[in-house]
Amino acid sequence: MPDARAAIADPAVRAAYREWLLRIADDELVIGHRHSEWTGFGPDIESDVAMSSIAQEELGHGRAWYEQIAADDGGDVDRLAFGRAPREYRHAALLEQENDGWEYSIVRLVLYEAFEVARLRLVAASGHEPAAGLAQTLSREERYHGLFADTWLTRLAGAPDGLERVQAALDRAWPDALGLFESTAADDVLRRAGVLPSSPGALRETWVDTVRPVLEQCGLAVPPSAGAREGGRRGVHTAAFEPLLVQLTEVWKSDPEARW
């Protein structure tokens, strides 16, 4: 594998790498925002508290990735998180969808966490610091997120009418989840430069291998592998994103120069 640092000296590769980190950061910010909407409204008090921790951790992960990007850009973390136009966000559609019931949020968590673990492993394996080290550290927290998600999924799907509800949520989330693996020119640049050891396609295979048994053990049918909803990685988002962004940035935008 060519030396990642040397490769990064190339401005095109550097830009592609920034793009890749931004995807991670935006995914975490947007899912953290959605999860945090459950705080105060969970199906039971204990789970409300637990989901809130997950929200905080995803937001914290987002911030850690923004810090790395901002350190390179010489910019400000909050400006990066709050100060971009909708088309400049790089998260996948799965993360911006509204919390359509607890079962939807749990299904999304199951699908996303399996992806996030695989992605962090990929970044950690890249050997490209400081991202690799950060990926290694963050995976510690993702472990609990996955455990919480799987524990809830089993119990929801185990209920008499639960299976049907969870299946419906899964069918809804699936095309968006496939969109997590959308690849752009940036992926090709990074692969050619050897910055990333494998492709998003390979990541997808790992992911399917992880989620399939989890879903099938619950009696759920894994939806077809075609029909990915893409666009997020290119800044094309669904109708759910704009209201989210308006709310997310409402106070910050009222005076971006102010210290809040």
């Binding site: 910010l29 925002h33 945090s36 909407e37 705080t39 809130s52 929200a55 905080q56 937001l59 914290g60 987002g62 911030r63 923004y66 973390v77 909050d78 998180a81 709050f82 709310q247 997310l248 409402e250 106070v251 910050w252 809040w260």
Partner: peptide
């Protein structure tokens, strides 16, 4: 929480 004006404030308010 959804409108907190910085990432740090958003996490702290959620907590």
């Amino acid at each position: 929480i959804p409108r907190a004006p910085s990432l740090a404030r958003k996490m702290a308010l959620t907590a």
